[in-house]
Every structure is written in structure tokens, then in C-alpha cells.
Simulated assay, not measured.
Amino acid sequence: MELLVMGVLPSGVHPGYAAWHCGAIEMLMVTVAMRNRIGLAWLGIGLFALADFTGSMIHRLTIIDGLAMVLTPLMWVGIANAVSVVLRRCVDQAEVYSSQERESAERLARENARRLAQTEWAKDLERATAPLLKKIASGKLSSGDITECVLLEAELRDQIRGRALATPEVVRAARAARARGARVDIFDDRGADLPPAVREEASAQLITALNDARVGWIKGRALPAGSPTAVTVLAYGDTPDDERFLEIKEP
């Protein structure tokens, strides 16, 4: 456009409206700048300004006339650049605010979930322990009540120390195994949630070992996060045939 129009402009006089191409190129570069192609817009308007000012000198215009042909397009691209920067900053700030809002909402949700879980656990704890605590307070405990106290204490310990491994099914199986005379230890040293597939497999393997146990010792442990092995299950009894050791790897 620049070369074609410059090739037919008169020499020695300011072209006036005949220099319409300046405004057309200006709008093209403003559009490019507003579409966040700032470098490309300045490259284009810079090449235009160089070509147009050189053409004005070749057409024997004064320096003032030559500058008048290019200053307005340069100014408008500068304005478009400034507007684009402001808009981009506004978009960045909006994204930051949205991210902070999401983080705040997630934090509140986690706190509410933790508070709800604590409340429900406290209610379950009260329902489970209140009858036995009343009997202890009254001093009227039978041998069966003492056994029940021991089993309940071990069950609560599993829920506290076992965390991810202490699913309701595992806790029930561990209680039944202790009632048959087996020793059970369940530990969660991971410090993070187990992957669902690992948790399901570990629960199934623990339940199998606990259901098979009559005597001996069953140990389930979730290893710290980052370990090659996620969960280990160890079971042994009076004979070598009762021994079982299983490692569950991270997926």
C-alpha cells in the first residue's frame, strides 16, 4: 500500500487527503496492537514511518510535512499499546483475584469438611464409649465388659493411627481377629492420601489376612509418601505356612 500510493503522489506539495494510506495503515497497526501483537505492530508502523518519511523527502516535502505524515500513526499505535498493556494488566489482576477466591473457597470447604468430620467422629465416639464408660464409673464390670473395653480401645487406636488403611471393613475385620486371639497393628506413616487403587488393594489384602488369622500377628503399614512401596502387609503365626508378606507399589 505504501509503495503504490507513494508512487503516484505529486512532488513538492503536501498530498493532503491523497495520503489516506497513512490512516489505513495506522488502523491496521492499531488493530494488531489491540490483539496483543505489540512487537508486530511496532515493527509494521516503524517500517511504514521509515518508508513514508523517505518517500516524503524524495517528493521534496519539508521535514515538518514529512513528520506530519507519520507522527499521528505513531501516536495512535502508542496509545493502542498503552491501552493493550492496561487491559492485559486488568486481565491478569482479574485472574489473580479469581485464583485467590478459588483458594479461599477451597480452604473454607476443607475447614468445614474437617469440622464436620470431627463433629461426626466425636458423636460416633460418644455412642461407642458412653455405655462402657458408665459401667466403669459405676464399678460394675464383668469379664465380658473388660474384653469389650480392650477391643474398643484397639479399634479406636486403629482409626487414629491407621487413618487411610483403617476403612470400616478393615476395622471390623481387625476387631474380629483380635477377638480370636490375634495381634493386629495398623499404621499410616504416609502423611498423604493413598491413590484409590492402592487403597482398595491394601484394604482387600488386609481383610483377607485378618479373616484368615486365628493366632499370630498381622501388621499393615502405609509407608511415607515418595517410597517405592506404598503399603506393606505382614502376617505370621505359629507355623511357616501362616507367614505372608505383601508389598503394594505405587501405580
Rank of each mutant, 00 (worst) to 15 (best):
residue 2 E to C: 10
residue 2 E to T: 15
residue 3 L to E: 14
residue 6 M to D: 08
residue 9 L to W: 04
residue 11 S to W: 08
residue 11 S to T: 13
residue 12 G to D: 10
residue 15 P to M: 02
residue 22 C to L: 08
residue 23 G to R: 14
residue 25 I to L: 13
residue 27 M to Q: 13
residue 27 M to V: 10
residue 28 L to D: 08
residue 29 M to T: 09
residue 30 V to P: 01
residue 31 T to C: 09
residue 31 T to F: 06
residue 34 M to N: 08
residue 35 R to T: 12
residue 38 I to R: 08
residue 39 G to Q: 12
residue 40 L to S: 10
residue 41 A to M: 06
residue 42 W to M: 04
residue 43 L to K: 14
residue 49 A to K: 10
residue 49 A to D: 10
residue 52 D to S: 12
residue 54 T to V: 14
residue 60 R to V: 08
residue 60 R to C: 06
residue 61 L to C: 05
residue 64 I to V: 13
residue 65 D to L: 01
residue 65 D to M: 02
residue 68 A to G: 03
residue 71 L to H: 00
residue 73 P to K: 03
residue 74 L to T: 00
residue 78 G to K: 00
residue 78 G to T: 04
residue 86 V to R: 01
residue 86 V to T: 00
residue 87 L to R: 06
residue 89 R to K: 11
residue 92 D to P: 03
residue 95 E to C: 06
residue 95 E to M: 11
residue 97 Y to L: 11
residue 98 S to G: 08
residue 102 R to N: 07
residue 107 R to L: 14
residue 109 A to P: 03
residue 110 R to T: 04
residue 112 N to E: 15
residue 112 N to Q: 14
residue 112 N to F: 11
residue 115 R to M: 11
residue 116 L to V: 10
residue 116 L to C: 07
residue 118 Q to M: 09
residue 119 T to A: 13
residue 119 T to V: 07
residue 121 W to C: 07
residue 121 W to L: 11
residue 122 A to Y: 03
residue 122 A to R: 12
residue 125 L to C: 01
residue 125 L to R: 08
residue 130 A to R: 03
residue 130 A to F: 01
residue 134 K to N: 03
residue 137 A to D: 04
residue 144 G to A: 05
residue 146 I to F: 05
residue 148 E to K: 01
residue 150 V to R: 01
residue 151 L to N: 00
residue 156 L to E: 02
residue 159 Q to D: 05
residue 160 I to H: 14
residue 166 A to I: 13
residue 166 A to V: 12
residue 167 T to S: 15
residue 168 P to R: 13
residue 170 V to D: 03
residue 171 V to E: 02
residue 171 V to G: 03
residue 176 A to D: 14
residue 179 A to C: 04
residue 183 R to Y: 06
residue 186 I to K: 07
residue 186 I to T: 08
residue 187 F to D: 12
residue 187 F to V: 15
residue 188 D to E: 13
residue 188 D to S: 12
residue 188 D to I: 12
residue 197 A to H: 05
residue 198 V to H: 05
residue 199 R to I: 09
residue 200 E to M: 07
residue 200 E to K: 12
residue 204 A to F: 09
residue 205 Q to K: 10
residue 206 L to P: 09
residue 207 I to Y: 06
residue 208 T to G: 05
residue 208 T to I: 09
residue 210 L to V: 03
residue 211 N to A: 11
residue 211 N to L: 09
residue 217 W to V: 10
residue 220 G to Q: 01
residue 222 A to V: 06
residue 222 A to E: 07
residue 224 P to K: 04
residue 230 A to V: 05
residue 230 A to I: 03
residue 231 V to C: 03
residue 235 A to R: 15
residue 235 A to S: 14
residue 238 D to R: 07
residue 240 P to Q: 08
residue 242 D to H: 01
residue 246 L to Y: 02
residue 247 E to Q: 14
residue 248 I to V: 01
residue 251 P to G: 01
residue 251 P to W: 02
